[in-house]
C-alpha cells in the first residue's frame, strides 16, 4: 500500500506493509539512519521524531498513521532551537556512546520550541521518556539550560 508523507520537507511515498513501524520505514526504506532502534515498545525514546511539531515514538507508530503528515527526523532539524540544542550538546560534550542522543536531541528541541526557558522539573518531565545507559543525564539537563540561554539571546 502506498503511503505519502513529508519527511524533512520532502514529499515521500513508500509502498510497504501499512503496519510497518515508521522507524523501519525511515531507516530501511529512506535510509535516514539517525533515528535509532532501542526497545521497540516506546520505552527508551531512541526512535523519537517530530510529527507536525510534536515528539513521536516512531518504533510503535504504524506508517499508515502518518499518511499526509509532516515528519522531521534528526537529519532534518534546522530550527533555531535545534541549532541551539545541538551546539549546547557539543559545547559540553554531552554524548558518550551517542546512540540515544538523536532521540535526546529531538526531545530537547521539541521542549524548547514549546517552552524556551524550562525549569529542572520541566526538563525532567519532558526528557523522562529518553533512556541513556551512559547516564549523560547531568549534562543533558545542563545543555538544555545552555541552549535556553542561547535562544534568549
Amino acid at each position: 500500500m502506498a503511503i505519502s508523507f513529508t519527511v524533512n520537507g520532502e514529499d515521500r511515498q513508500v509502498d510497504v506493509d501499512p503496519d510497518t513501524p515508521l522507524l523501519w520505514v525511515l531507516r530501511d526504506e529512506l535510509r535516514l539512519t539517525g533515528t535509532k532502534f532501542g526497545c521497540g515498545i516506546a520505552q527508551c525514546g531512541a526512535c523519537t521524531v517530530h510529527m507536525n511539531g510534536m515528539t513521536l515514538r516512531s518504533c510503535v507508530t504504524p506508517v499508515s498513521s502518518v499518511d499526509g503528515s509532516e515528519v522531521t527526523t534528526i537529519e532534518g532539524l534546522d530550527s533555531p532551537a535545534a541549532k541551539a540544542v545541538q551546539d549546547a550538546w557539543v559545547g559540553i560534550d554531552v554524548p558518550q556512546c551517542g546512540y540515544c542522543q538523536s532521540g535526546q536531541v529531538m526531545s530537547a528541541t521539541a521542549l524548547l520550541e514549546e517552552n524556551p526557558a524550562p525549569t529542572d522539573e520541566e526538563i525532567d518531565e519532558a526528557m523522562a521518556g529518553n533512556i541513556c545507559r551512559c547516564a549523560t543525564y547531568v549534562r543533558i539537563r545542563q545543555a538544555i539550560h545552555d541552549a535556553a540561554k542561547t535562544l534568549e539571546g
Binding site: T33, G34, Q86, D93, P95, G98, Q101, S102, V105
Partner: peptide, 10 residues
Amino acid sequence: KVDSRAKSTG
C-alpha cells in the same frame, strides 16, 4: 571530544 558533533546530529 572528536565525536560529539557527529553524535549530536545523527
